[in-house]
Amino acid sequence: MRTPSGERIRRAAGTKDIKKAQELRAKLVHELWQQQYMAEKPKRLWDEAAVQWINERQDKKSIQTDIARLRQLGRLRGMYLHEMSRDVIMSVINDMTCSPSTKNRYIALIRSILYKARDEWEWIDKAPKLKQLKEPTKRVRWLKPEEAHRLVMALPDNYWRHMAVFSLATGLRQSNVFSLKWEQVDLKRKLAWIFPDEAKSGKAIVVPLNDLAIKILAIRQGMHHTYVFTTTQKQVVKSLNRKVWQKALKDAGIRDFRWHDLRHTWASWLIQQGVPLLALKEMGGWEKLDMVMRYAHLAAEHLAPHAGVLDGLEWFRHKMDTSSNEASKGKSLNDCLGF
């Protein structure tokens, strides 16, 4: 088969039925004619867009995660991009057996690919608007100092205990602690840094080291020439030992707590000690302020003076005086206030 301009095209029909093959050929000829003379865009498949996305985003840190998610979107394969309506896409998403937050990751990926196809590749004229699902608000899990002490003491007195204390002292993510190298530490200046390619935000993070962090580093000095934290066999710590972690939690009497919650604990302690949210954002390497706002409720003491302004109103003083007098006569505060 040849295009109107004379270019030869070979394509498998995918069927042994001669009549169906002929119908397919006629359809392709019609589409090619429209593209040539009616300036219509070639029809592109989702499969082509997914491949194009992967090829262009090889430098993306989470490209392997994208590839894994694209594999889970098998129902979109074979669909033309211009036929992918919001209803079609959300039907696929809603049938997935995962949490709303995970579904939102799939929605974001599909949306990004379709916007690329529209704005940069010019494969389609419009893309459906995909709204993310409402996610349940999750509480921040953190430990009180006495709980943290129990957990640390329940861990083996080796690199596990050292890494946990260092995490509580710096707030670094698990991967950054496990892979920390001595070249990233300056003991004299009391600083450490995370390189951009190792940071979740893709930006370098400067980590101020307090005395407890310095003490841990001093203990670890000389144990390994490259890495700060290694096993007793001088091996790099590649992942969390679930058995060790779960035993420590059980022995410490702590439930529903992940290693990442050590970072939440660090942030919660800082907020409760009066560290401003903007400073915490910079220290923790968060990209947006709203990621830090989940800790704001832990430092509400500064709001108390504002609430106390109402105590100066004459109506408030009158009610409180009346309540005191009536309470002495045996009435409850609710009775006095008319509740």
Rank of each mutant, 00 (worst) to 15 (best):
R173E: 09
A192N: 07
E40L: 10
W142R: 08
A213L: 05
A12C: 09
A49L: 14
Q221Y: 11
N325A: 14
Y227P: 02
A127K: 03
L180W: 03
K203S: 06
L180A: 03
K331M: 13
Q35K: 12
K41W: 04
V309R: 11
I205W: 07
C336S: 15
T232V: 06
W193E: 08
I18G: 08
I63D: 00
M283I: 09
A300V: 09
Q132S: 14
T15L: 06
K19T: 15
I124D: 03
L262A: 04
D290S: 14
D47N: 13
V88A: 10
D95A: 10
V92L: 03
Q246D: 13
L143Q: 01
L109C: 03
L76F: 15
G222A: 03
K126G: 04
A21S: 10
K126T: 12
K43G: 01
L24V: 11
L337K: 09
G308M: 14
I194N: 10
L303P: 00
H30I: 06
Q246C: 07
L298C: 01
W269A: 03
Q272R: 12
S268M: 00
R118Y: 05
Q132V: 12
V165Q: 08
K215H: 11
C98Q: 04
E31L: 10
L151A: 04
R161H: 07
L109A: 02
K250P: 04
K203W: 04
K281R: 15
P276Q: 02
T15H: 07
N158L: 01
A50L: 06
A164E: 07
I93G: 00
H82Y: 13
L133P: 09
E48C: 01
I216C: 01
V29E: 15
E23N: 15
L212I: 14
Y37G: 01
A154R: 00
